[in-house]
């Protein structure tokens, strides 16, 4: 099992990663020419100096960096947004993170439901045409970018059959197409992993024993084989979550969903230093804790895994 010591080390590791990432982003953002206050006309040097002073951007870089790090790690204050000036970065994230999380969770549920179902179906009908069809579809699924899937979904379900609304997020119906577009590629991966895992387990001796005891195929599949076969799927959930979060960047744009994704690109391209760093911090924390949680879950599921990871 995982000891408190290793857990602590891992948590420290997460903090270290955040530190590294924020430092890299800080350096990159300040290397972007143009500065944060360019919008089409040259501004008087005095006005620009006033702006920079107001946001503490005129201090020497190391000083800005130290002050920023102090605010982030000691006070949890991610600073003001330079482009959304009525908001602090914390407020922007507080408003958009739940939206992105909602979408991400729904996409993950779609991925799990479709992926596990299809994987089990393929494994049960191994070698048959169902298997070929499902696996062919899964190969296609991991090959298609989510924006192509989104395009096809919109084409069919918004413009052809008019079943779903196109944009915004005001009702659960608005979540259906984005979740599918976002989750489908991961459903494909999960299906492939689950099928392989099931087949591997089904080939082992104790399963043969269970079968010999007279259990039916379906019972064997679900009662005995599913849990160990879930292992590769569980270890995939970490990367999947990361992928879903970055994928939501595009999907949010297509369906005009006001989540963190829209802030992601905008803040970087518009040199909104504080918001960009804030988004990247939240994202890094999410991904690393998800990886940690996945490792823990893995250890719980598989007694063979020792504390060291």
């Amino acid at each position: 099992m995982i000891t408190p010591r290793t857990l602590l080390l891992r948590l420290l590791g997460v903090a270290g990663i955040v530190l590294v990432v924020v430092t890299v982003c800080f350096a990159l953002m300040h290397a972007v020419p143009g500065g944060p206050f360019d919008d089409g006309r040259d501004i008087d040097p005095a006005i620009k100096a006033n702006l920079l002073a107001r946001y503490d951007l005129d201090a020497p870089l190391p000083q800005q960096y130290v002050r920023y790090m102090g605010n982030v790690f000691l006070r949890g204050d991610l600073g003001p947004s330079l482009k959304l000036r009525d908001y602090s970065v914390n407020q922007v994230l507080a408003e958009s993170l739940p939206v992105s999380m909602t979408l991400g969770v729904c996409a993950l549920l779609v991925a799990l439901a479709i992926g596990l179902g299809a994987g089990a179906l393929a494994a049960a009908r191994r070698g048959g045409w169902v298997d070929t069809l499902v696996m062919g579809g899964a190969t296609l699924g991991i090959s298609l970018p989510n924006f192509v899937i989104a395009g096809l979904l919109v084409l069919l379900f918004v413009f052809h059959w008019r079943l779903f609304p196109l944009t915004g997020l005001t009702s659960p119906a608005h979540l259906v197409l984005p979740s599918i577009a976002l989750g489908l590629p991961f459903a494909a991966s999960i299906a492939r992993l689950f099928r392989t895992g099931l087949l591997e387990v089904l080939g082992e001796d104790w399963i043969r024993t269970a079968r010999a005891k007279g259990l039916t195929g379906r019972a064997v599949l679900w009662r005995h084989a599913a849990r160990p076969a879930m292992l590769p799927v569980v270890s995939f959930l970490g990367p999947a979550l990361a992928g879903i979060l970055s994928g939501s960047l595009v999907v949010e744009q297509i369906f005009a969903i006001p989540g963190m994704g829209s802030h992601f690109v905008d803040s970087a391209l518009n040199a909104d230093y504080y918001l960009a760093s804030g988004v990247v911090i939240v994202y890094t924390v999410l991904v690393s804790t998800a990886n940690l949680a996945v490792d823990l879950g893995y250890a719980l599921l598989d007694p063979r895994v020792e504390g060291s990871t």
Partner: peptide, 18 residues
């Protein structure tokens, strides 16, 4: 290991902007 937890998409966007 550390690099796996870095949101590369973001870093790439920054890099390309630079």
């Amino acid at each position: 290991d550390v690099a796996y937890s870095i949101p590369f998409l973001f870093v790439v966007i920054l890099l390309i902007a630079v």
